[in-house]
Design a binder for these strands. Structure first.
Lengths: 200, 200
DNA sequence: CATGGTTTCGAGGCTGTATCGAAAGTGAAC
DNA sequence: GTTCACTTTCGATACAGCCTCGAAACCATG
């Protein structure tokens, strides 16, 4: 119905509907109606519903990736960088209109269609892993398996969005709590997580 | 096709198929075929597909609840109890044939149909919250919001199952890592998480 | 206004959900 | 052995949603 780029409008409406109804319950008819089109007209812009999902997830993915790239090249000790990453990631995830985990799951079942997603995800994982590894090396983090730690960090972030959507709260507060707990469990005994938290 | 209780058989097959294909892609035809029934025969045992989901989730829910009940009444300091809870919960979740988060999400969209689920979930949350609160009181945990901490613990546990299913590993190892990180971020500065980990 | 590219839609095939009523199976009572 | 009530199974069918296709409407440019 409105002006702008139809693709843009569809994606915005899709994000909202996915969040409200879930992906499964968001039919192409509802989505089309939302932007003032007939159901079959959507197929002019997207081959199918999954392509809408893919387009949406492609954008959501950019945020954490840019976040960590920026942090890696910035300065500060590793725990501080990690703290900022988790806080930023959680905050961004909680701001999404839809459930990232649901999209994540759909993507997981179709590795080929969502190849880009998985590549970026793998890159994010590598960046985070090597950041953790650096921390273990320089003694600012405990001696844990960096790959396991990285996976756990990402799991916490995404898992958090799960319940956040059910029980809304100030995103920043939640993000700080998750960051403090998660990174607090990683820092070496000598380092005080509260000091890092207040510095971040 | 086999002997036993048809309901039982359907649930077992459903767990497997939900895990392999996802809930959405598991059609009633496939499910029926799996147990040697016609598609419409399933509706004799279950009103619809969501009822299969509900039956499955009802069982999965029991495990963490029993786990924490047992721990609360046992002895040991709070961090030790929490460590054991997280490890047990993660291990149990990783052992499920299906993705608990997907079921979680479906349940979230239908509060009334899954009322039992939400009640048990709320109970679990209360138990965990009050355990954390006890730890904060007696000084074995840092001064954090117990509700936020409890939510974060559960989010980590469930979020972990997410990637665990994609990248299988020894469940115990993963469970230990998650417990060490999560609870490590909660314990008061004086307490050594490694000591707790080796005691658990 | 003719041409060609862009955008929209209605009709229809196909698959999956769920309902319904009929049929088949089962066992206890006579 | 037949009857009867109860349980279990299924085929037919309505209905909704996904997606395709071809035709029509739209629109810029010469």
């Amino acid at each position: 119905m409105a002006a702008g780029d139809p693709i843009e409008e569809v994606l915005i409406a899709a994000g909202r509907l996915f969040g409200q109804l879930g992906v499964e319950a968001t039919t192409m008819s509802k989505l089309a109606a939302e932007v003032g089109l007939g159901q079959s007209s959507l197929y002019y812009y997207f081959r199918n519903r999954d392509e809408v999902v893919a387009a949406l997830v492609a954008r959501a993915n950019v945020v954490p990736l840019e976040l960590i790239e920026g942090l890696v090249h910035g300065d500060g000790i590793v725990p501080l960088k990690l703290y900022r990453f988790v806080r930023g990631d959680v905050e961004a995830l909680c701001g999404l209109p839809f459930d990232i985990n649901e999209i994540h799951r759909i993507a997981g079942r179709q590795r080929d269609r969502f190849a880009d997603y998985w590549q970026e995800r793998a890159l994010l994982d590598r960046r985070l892993t090597s950041l953790v590894r650096a921390g273990v090396r320089d003694g600012s983090l405990r001696d844990i398996d960096p790959r396991l730690a990285s996976a756990t960090i990402l799991a916490s972030d995404e898992g958090t969005q799960n319940w956040f959507r059910l029980r809304p709260q100030p995103a920043r507060r939640v993000a700080d709590a998750v960051a403090r707990i998660t990174i607090g469990g990683l820092v070496a005994p000598g380092i005080d997580i509260d000091e890092i938290a207040s510095e971040a």
